[in-house]
């Protein structure tokens, strides 16, 4: 595990809820400009790990480091100002505000004037190709647009790291392809270190250079997509069945949506 260089790192992190171990000795690194994947069955502790990395969940034992500096115990809004951004599984847009203001809030939260924040918000919307949504009230957006606006809100003022919590949930194959393009551009063009949590394993295998697999609070496998594809441990944790079924799970998802 490389510790030098520009990374957001969780080192030997454990978190307990009322005696229940949510995370035990988890070590994970998100390098700048790359896409890292985090997969695992429901209840494996993926969202808890994101919460730890973004300051929403206090670290039990272990450390969280941002490019070499310990960041345990720092409030979420301060971590965002230090460049650690995230999205939420449930979207969590500001429902009463227009889309443009949803993005503007981040700019304002990061210290921009309203005018500058609006200018930047327009640029981000244009960059994502969703400028026509600017004036729509966020609560009235269709599901997939909600996801894109949430990503736009998170990449305002170009963070250093972006943690995406199931951004493709409920998307069709076509839509998740569009999303994949956006995520690639965020890492490639903006130099953001992306951590992608997804149930759509096909998307993760396609996008990520390195994938961490979490099961029952423990990292059970780390490696390149090929290695994950072949891993017995992963197959067992995920499917409990034969290896070929990992990829068909994708087809099933596409059929369901």
């Amino acid at each position: 595990m490389t510790s030098q260089g520009l990374e957001l790192v969780a080192r030997d992190v454990s978190v307990q809820f009322e005696g229940l171990k949510a995370l035990s000795d988890v070590t994970l690194a998100v390098p700048r400009g790359r896409i890292t994947g985090l997969i695992g069955p429901n209840g494996a502790g993926k969202t808890t790990l994101i919460n730890v990395l973004t300051g929403f969940q206090p670290v039990g034992t272990g450390t969280v480091e941002l490019e070499g500096n310990a960041i345990g115990g720092i409030a979420p809004h301060k971590l965002r100002r230090m460049g650690v951004a995230r999205t939420f599984q449930s979207g969590r847009l500001f429902r009463d505000l227009p889309v443009i203001d949803n993005l503007e809030v981040t700019g304002v939260g990061l210290g921009q004037s309203r005018r500058d924040a609006i200018t930047e918000a327009r640029q981000v919307l244009a960059w994502l190709g969703i400028s026509p949504l600017a004036a729509t009230i966020a609560g009235a957006l269709p599901y997939t647009d909600e996801r894109r606006v949430a990503i736009g809100r998170a990449i305002m003022c170009t963070p250093r790291y972006l943690l995406l919590d199931e951004p493709a949930a409920g998307m069709s194959e076509h839509e998740s392809h569009d999303l994949a393009v956006i995520i690639k551009r965020i890492a490639g063009e903006l130099g953001v270190g992306v951590l992608l949590i997804e149930h759509n394993i096909g998307l993760v295998l396609e996008l990520c250079e390195r994938i961490f697999v979490l099961d029952s609070g423990e990292i059970i496998e780390v490696g390149a997509p090929d290695q994950i594809r072949r891993s017995d441990a992963v197959r067992h944790a995920y499917m409990g069945t034969q290896r070929d079924e990992i990829i068909p799970a994708l087809a099933e998802q596409a059929a369901a949506s």
């Binding site: 809004h77 965002r80 939420f88 429902r95 505000l97 809030v105 939260g109 809100r153 305002m156």
Partner: peptide, 16 residues
């Protein structure tokens, strides 16, 4: 007003 709608998301947007 953003925090009024979604407190958690507002904090994640850098709002104190």
């Amino acid at each position: 007003r953003a925090a009024r709608d979604e407190e958690v998301a507002a904090r994640a947007s850098g709002v104190d």
